[in-house]
Simulated assay, not measured.
Amino acid sequence: MADSQVGGPATETVPLPKSLRTFFRVDDVRHDGDRIRYVGESLLPERALLREVAPAFHEAGYDVDFRATAEGDVLVARPHGSGREGVPWLNVVMLLATVASTLFVGAYGWYYVPLSTLTESPLTLLRAWPFTAAVLGVLLTHELGHYAAGRYHGVDVSLPYVIPFVFPFGTLGAVIRMRGRMPSRKALFDIGVAGPVAGLVATVVVTAVGLSLDPVAVPDHVLRESSRMIVFNNPPLLSWIAAALGRDAGASVHPVVIGGWVGMFFTLLNLLPVGQLDGGHMTRAMLGERQETLASLVPGALFAIAAYLHWVLDKGLQESVGLWAFWGLFALFIAFNGPANPVDESELGWPRLAVGIATFAAGATCFLLVPVEIVG
Score class of each variant (00 low, 15 high):
F23E: 13
F23R: 11
D27C: 00
D28S: 13
V29L: 02
V29T: 02
H31N: 10
D34H: 09
R35C: 03
R35Y: 06
R37P: 03
R37G: 03
G40H: 03
E41R: 11
L44H: 01
L44C: 04
L44A: 02
P45A: 06
E46I: 09
E46M: 10
R47P: 04
A48P: 01
A48D: 12
R51C: 00
E52A: 15
P55V: 08
A56W: 11
F57N: 07
H58V: 06
H58M: 05
E59F: 02
A60Q: 12
A60D: 12
A60I: 03
A60S: 12
G61K: 10
D63M: 00
V64T: 00
D65K: 06
D65T: 11
A70F: 09
G72H: 01
G72L: 02
V74G: 03
V74W: 01
V74H: 00
V76I: 15
R78E: 08
R78Q: 00
P79S: 08
P79W: 04
G81T: 14
G81D: 15
G81N: 15
S82C: 03
G83R: 13
R84F: 15
G86K: 13
G86C: 11
W89I: 13
L90V: 15
V92Y: 08
M94H: 05
A97L: 15
T98K: 05
T98P: 05
A100F: 11
S101G: 04
S101D: 09
T102V: 04
L103V: 04
V105L: 05
G106R: 10
Y108I: 02
G109R: 09
W110R: 14
Y112A: 08
L115Q: 13
T117G: 04
L118V: 02
T119F: 12
T119A: 11
P122T: 06
L125A: 06
L126K: 03
R127I: 13
R127A: 05
A128Q: 09
W129P: 00
P130C: 05
F131K: 04
F131Q: 06
F131G: 04
A133S: 11
A134W: 13
G137I: 07
V138C: 09
L139D: 10
L140A: 08
